[in-house]
Amino acid sequence: MSILRRPTSLFRPRRGPNQSLLTENRALIEDIDRRKLLRGAVSLGALSMLTGCDIAEQSQVQSALRSVSSFNDWVQAKIFDPNKLAPTYSVDQVVKPPRFNAYYEIENVKPVDLASWKLELSGLITDKRPWGLDQISALPEQEVIIKHICVEGWDYIGQWSGPNLRQFLTQIGADLSAKYVAFHGQDDYMESIDMASALHPQTILATKYAGEPITDPFGAPLRLRTAVKLGFKNPKWIRAIEVTNTYQEGFWEKQGFNWFSGL
């Protein structure tokens, strides 16, 4: 067993990944695990020699706090009311342009090439044909004027429109009883949300801001906007949507932020 593997949590999926996937890719998985173990052993040893401090003790506190965070995921899912609507606002309260946020600066945004862009679909979905932007634009549009609340503490009112996610998932034949919907961004940013939040009436795949197509810094051509999650759970520049029963840590959870992060 790899020492780097996170202890199984009481609150994380019991069913775990589809076992057939494991069998099919056993060789690959074992290879990855061996490499990680080797790398982990080397760097852990090096670290302890460098600092002389007790890493084991540090990581025990860390893993205890992460377990509490997983417990809080479970509590938040219990608190979540799928029919509870977030407050909405009027058009004249909308902030233009929206506030930029990413794990890098606005100058480093790599615009998506709209001509070649396709939305890829994977996982528990019947019709996995990719979608072009014109096809998405042809779908019925829903507008939400909602608060974007950042985990840091700031917020602003934004006016977003695009297809409703529940309708989209239904149309592509997604398994709506699956646990998670994961969004992969062009910039290798990934975040997954629980199915209940994905199906919330105020969760949309936004293509427009204040009636105009979303511009590059804010996630063009497609981003998630859900009224029931903190800002970082709304990936921008989406290139793929995955419906799955496998829990995947997103970009910020890997840094220690709470996964559910529901509002």
Binding site: L65, V151, E152, G153, Q255, G256, F257, N258
Partner: peptide, 26 residues
């Protein structure tokens, strides 16, 4: 991580956790 009053930052020595996410965990 997002101060309310521009003049007020708490010194790292009296805060808990190396980064904001650890503060949130605590």
């Amino acid at each position: 991580d997002e101060v309310i009053f521009g003049f007020l930052h708490f010194p790292d020595a009296i805060t808990l956790g190396p980064w904001a996410q650890h503060g949130l965990q605590w």
